[in-house]
Design a protein around this nucleic acid. Structure first.
Lengths: 160, 160
DNA sequence: ACAGATATCGAGACTCAATCTCAACACAAG
DNA sequence: CTTGTGTTGAGATTGAGTCTCGATATCTGT
């Protein structure tokens, strides 16, 4: 048993929730994917595998996975939320490219330490934190520079 | 002319957009409010003043204000977005209390500097960044501690 | 100040992610 | 097998935010 199956099963049991095929399938897919995926991606995977799982179940299971700490929800502020596995991984923050949508992960212990310090000073008890840096990745920055002078409006028109 | 009226008027003119009563009224309200407000609050204010402004117009105007840099949009990940004036204020980050919903502002130059450095290392061009720390403010932390052992489930049931 | 050109407004329809409802189903324990 | 309870999926619902379009207000040139 690998990739968090045991942990999730135990977490479910501890809450008197059942270990079902659908739940394990969702866990499997999130763990197999190595990026920041969304619900559409998951549903598509299940469809391909001829083992459709309803959106409601995917949403419900992801919610459980997030609560169990095995998966993290990433709100980019553009359309759907995305999810990434956290099992066996350490906390990290995100840079989100406004050009191609790529999400780059990074960590910086010093920033974390400073956050703790600031919160301690304000007597604020940290539960979670999110640091998102939006801008343009190396590739999109170069592309943008080469078109300079033209229409460089990369704004998205979805909700944000 | 104060509180960004001039700036907003000029910004609108620069884009061949018109300076209307509705737009100035929205600017006024956001500037008058000294917290992190939402659309409902604004609409309520206009209703009280017997000068109703439609939601569509409020949304459209806030979008302009954000683009002009006079106002900042804050996505807490719970329900509606909130807005705060930025005119005459410096950038800051947020701590969001999961108990009472209060938003505490803070700044830390060292964190900003480290962000720049991390992005430089990854050749990422920063446009904006958001640092949100979720947890419990001093008051809610104390309250939580005093109820310890009981039902301490502060999770929200709205979308997040 | 007036008129024409055009941006803006408001009411309500619409979009879309996410959640909820509920009847059918599955599973564990007696 | 039966009962109790958790789960599922299809589709309805919610709710923030956006769009449409006829009526209206603002700007610009004269």
């Amino acid at each position: 048993m690998r990739e968090g199956k045991q942990e999730f099963a135990e977490w479910l049991a501890s809450r008197k929730l059942r270990v079902t095929g659908e739940r394990m399938a969702v866990l499997d897919e999130v763990m197999r994917a190595n990026g920041h995926i969304d619900i559409d991606y998951l549903q598509e995977q299940f469809r391909k595998q001829k083992r459709p799982v309803s959106r409601a179940t995917i949403y419900r299971t992801l919610s459980h996975l997030v609560q169990s700490g095995l998966v993290q929800k990433v709100l980019t502020g553009e359309g759907q939320a995305r999810y990434e596995k956290m099992y066996g991984r350490q906390h990290h923050d995100h840079m989100i490219c406004l050009g191609c949508g790529e999400i780059i992960e990074f960590t910086n212990d010093e920033i974390e330490r400073l956050q703790d310090w600031v919160c301690h000073k304000k007597r604020f008890t940290i539960v979670t934190h999110t640091l998102q840096i939006k801008g343009f990745c190396e590739k999109c920055s170069a592309q943008k520079a080469s078109v300079e002078g033209g229409a460089t409006d990369h704004r998205r028109h979805g909700r944000n």
